[in-house]
Design a protein around this nucleic acid. Sequence first.
DNA 1: ACGTTGACCTATA
DNA 2: GTATAGGCCAACG
Length: 108
Amino acid sequence: MSDFYENVFEIVRQIPPGRVTSYGAIARYLGTAGSSRMVGWAMNLSHHQQIYVPAHRVVNRNGLLTGKIHFGSPDEMRELLENEGVNVENDCVTAFARLFWDPMKELP
DNA sequence: ACGTTGACCTATA
DNA sequence: GTATAGGCCAACG
């Protein structure tokens, strides 16, 4: 496992319940801004990780649940979020700006 | 080996 | 305000 993926998983695990962040924010925090697609790949691998990675807390810049397809069922991601108190409407996180969790600010 | 494909983002028109 | 273009780089066929 490369350091890049390990860092991605570690950040995603740090996301508090009920908060969300974006792929780009993680990429920027890792210093690989512009390579946000790699963060998406990392999420794909997150399923194979033995340690649970809350990939449902990572959405795109608009708060859209673009990755819901990659879960067991398309509704699983939405239910996981709502289970944590995050309201999802039309595959979009409501009050996304308010719930946004920026690793640049929240992590040392 | 090469072209295509993405859980994306930013910039320009 | 939407639309298109370009960049990113690892996996897959």
